Simulated assay, not measured.
Amino acid sequence: MGGLAAALLWVTMAGAGGHEPPVHTLAEVLFCQPPWPSLGAALTFDADQLFWFDFPGSRWTPRLPDLPPWPPALETPDQLLQDANLCQDLRRAITDLVTGRLAEAKGVPMADVFPMRPPVPGEPNTLVCLVANIFPPAVEIVWLLDGVPVTQEVTHTHYTPMADLTFLRFSYLRVTPATGDIYTCVVTRQGDNTSTIAYWVLQPPVDAEELQTALCGAAMALGILLALLGIAMLVAARRGARGAGR
């Protein structure tokens, strides 16, 4: 049985002013595990990833290009690599102790696909596959278009640790959608034969005149229904008044 060890540093900060100041969480999470990626580290603020550590390149990398670079004196790559070696040693030792005695924890990934901008047929857009409830952080994300794998214009983010000890990951696919295209995001856990699948289909645009006609018809039907209901209530009230006068 494989194992996963994680070192977590959670810092909770409360804003000033007000009766109930907002609470913010700054977290640095380091994990190590047998499957790829064997090492991972990220710094998050309120579950939004700010930096992730590129272990092959031995450097902190900002999640977004407009973020300032990592302060060199805050935590050097050498310090983090020492922590990573300790994490690996602890993982191996704990795995030897608990294998066959404790069940291995696993989460079932949940996926959702949505466009980054309101979709328009024939106009470039980006589809986002949001994968949540990942544990351990070792999943493969594949895109399909009408059942055919797509490898071009695909990017994946690093794993983002969440407060419930699961991980979040995004995958992006640049597309020029057409009506009827079926896009599929397939998420597979490494070492398993199970996958989570999410679909996205560009719906045909609704003609403005047809939509207006449908809305007018619905409003007319609702008006007739309310009128009939009012007549029925009036008749019932008159019958009740006549019965009371006898």
Rank of each mutant, 00 (worst) to 15 (best):
K106D: 08
V120I: 12
L50G: 01
D112Q: 06
L74G: 11
P69K: 01
D54W: 03
L74S: 12
G57N: 03
Q79W: 05
D78V: 10
G107A: 03
R92P: 02
A47V: 12
A93Y: 15
W36F: 13
L102S: 02
Q33C: 06
S58P: 06
P109C: 02
L86R: 10
G57M: 03
T76G: 10
L74T: 07
T61F: 10
L74Q: 08
Q49G: 06
L81Y: 05
L90N: 10
L30Q: 05
L97T: 06
L81A: 05
L80H: 11
C87Q: 02
Q79N: 12
L97C: 08
T76A: 13
T76E: 05
P34E: 14
F114V: 06
L67G: 03
P77Q: 12
L102W: 11
D66E: 02
T61K: 15
V29A: 15
N85G: 13
L26P: 06
L90R: 07
P37R: 12
G100T: 11
A27F: 03
Q49A: 13
A111G: 04
L43W: 04
A27M: 08
A105H: 07
L26F: 15
R101V: 10
L43P: 05
Q82K: 15
D66L: 04
P34C: 02
P62V: 02
P118K: 08
R92Q: 05
L43G: 06
K106E: 09
P35K: 11
T25R: 15
A105Q: 10
P69T: 00
W36Q: 12
A47N: 15
D89Y: 15
I94D: 09
A111F: 02
L97H: 14
P65A: 06
A84S: 05
M116I: 04
P118R: 07
P69L: 01
P72K: 03
W36S: 14
E104N: 00
F114I: 05
E104R: 13
F45Y: 09
A105P: 06
P65N: 00
Q88M: 15
D78P: 05
A105E: 04
P37N: 10
D46V: 07
A42E: 09
A73S: 14
L90M: 12
G107K: 01
Q49H: 09
M110S: 15
P118W: 05
W70C: 05
L50Q: 02
N85L: 15
L30I: 07
R92I: 04
L39A: 11
D54S: 01
D96C: 08
F31R: 12
A27Q: 10
D96Y: 05
D83T: 09
G57L: 03
P62F: 00
G40W: 07
S38E: 11
S58C: 13
Q79K: 12
A93M: 13
P71I: 02
W70I: 04
P118G: 11
V120R: 08
E28W: 15
P37T: 07
N85F: 12
L90F: 13
V98K: 12
L90Y: 12
P109T: 03
G40L: 11
